[in-house]
Amino acid sequence: MVKAIEATGIAVVHICTIVPISQTVGANRIVPAVAIPYPLGDPSKTHEEEIEIRRAILQKALKALMTPIKEQTVFN
């Protein structure tokens, strides 16, 4: 899905937990997520802390979208 959207020329950032799969399949901009059942959260934390986690990942995602890349890149 990532690749097919990107093939239309729109930049896509893939936020996912299992980075190796995303790499194998061929996403170009990858931002690691927290865990499969809660990629952008963490139920063991307070709601406020979760919001911070979510914001940090999304900020990385925006940064990834602004970064020129030549090859597959993981934004840690």
Binding site: M1, I5, E6, I10, L58
Partner: peptide, 26 residues
């Protein structure tokens, strides 16, 4: 199927002037 979904979504977004996509996976 994913490819088909992606192409359709991409085309629509392009038409609507969307600049970038955040795609989340579990």
């Amino acid at each position: 199927s994913s490819k088909k979904f992606g192409s359709e979504i991409g085309e629509r977004l392009k038409k609507d002037g969307v600049d970038a996509v955040i795609l989340t996976s579990t």
